[in-house]
Design a protein around this nucleic acid. Sequence first.
DNA 1: GCTTTAGCTAGGCAATCTGTATAGTGGGGC
DNA 2: GCCCCACTATACAGATTGCCTAGCTAAAGC
Lengths: 155, 155
Amino acid sequence: MSEMYAVDATDRKILGQLDEDGRMPVAMIAHNLGLARGTVQARLDRMQAADVFRPHSSRVKPAAFGRPVAAMVQVELDQHLIQEAIGALASIPEVLECFAPAGDTDLLLRVVARDPDDLYRVSEEIRLCPGIMRTSTSLFLRQVIPYRVTGLLAE
Amino acid sequence: MSEMYAVDATDRKILGQLDEDGRMPVAMIAHNLGLARGTVQARLDRMQAADVFRPHSSRVKPAAFGRPVAAMVQVELDQHLIQEAIGALASIPEVLECFAPAGDTDLLLRVVARDPDDLYRVSEEIRLCPGIMRTSTSLFLRQVIPYRVTGLLAE
DNA sequence: GCTTTAGCTAGGCAATCTGTATAGTGGGGC
DNA sequence: GCCCCACTATACAGATTGCCTAGCTAAAGC
């Protein structure tokens, strides 16, 4: 895994400003932070180029796509078919994310669905992927702390 | 949980354009989609107002904050102290997200850290939160499918 | 059938913002 | 001491935004 560009204190302050208003003009950010406009602009460009950001759409809450139901699916798979499994899973829109954890389960999927019934359909689709041997789905009753990086921003 | 504004096909197309270029001007989006500028502007404003978006900073990959290590922490807690526990957990920057799953575990935390050693420190902090009785941490060796909503966009 | 409402188109305007470039400054590394 | 890099300060043209008007269409309500 390649080393990723690490944002510094100034970058974090800039990002903090954008958090307050995602459309805040560069000049305003610079003014609020006591920086020159060029500096802010250069920082933003650098972060962009350094692949610090996820796609814009990742900001959209899944619920806004009509997928208010979230769940975690643990997958046990045939070790010979890992790549095939991942490829197939990646083609399921409701699979938002996939991790390979250390330990008993081979893959951990973050999935969403329209409703509990739809979740069943999605888990069926997952089960049908090549190499998938067993799955175990656990429904998320609630998102207690919504995704945030704010704390890391403040440091 | 209140019903959330659901993005429609047009909204999704607009978001798709922004995915290709997060700084694409509104006029360009409109042109690409064969819409009037005013329409695109109105849609974006509406989505903004409808709280469809997460904070801007949520786009920043945790690795860029110097937290390349990710893990999941299962928490079992004293049911009388749920609120206290959540409050304390929320004040830990490395806890990016927290779910309440149906089943044996009470809370599922998504955490990041600087390195394995730092992860230990974070899990210590979690253990020290009020109401936390037992924790079980599983390290993510790899993020096989990075977070994305692209599939839902395309529908 | 008629009216109302909501959303879209098309156009225009002023103020603002961006992209880009230049020159000068200060600190850090060698 | 010298070089390099990041930041400041400033400038300018062109593009973009925010806001507004007016007309059109389709769906909904009465």
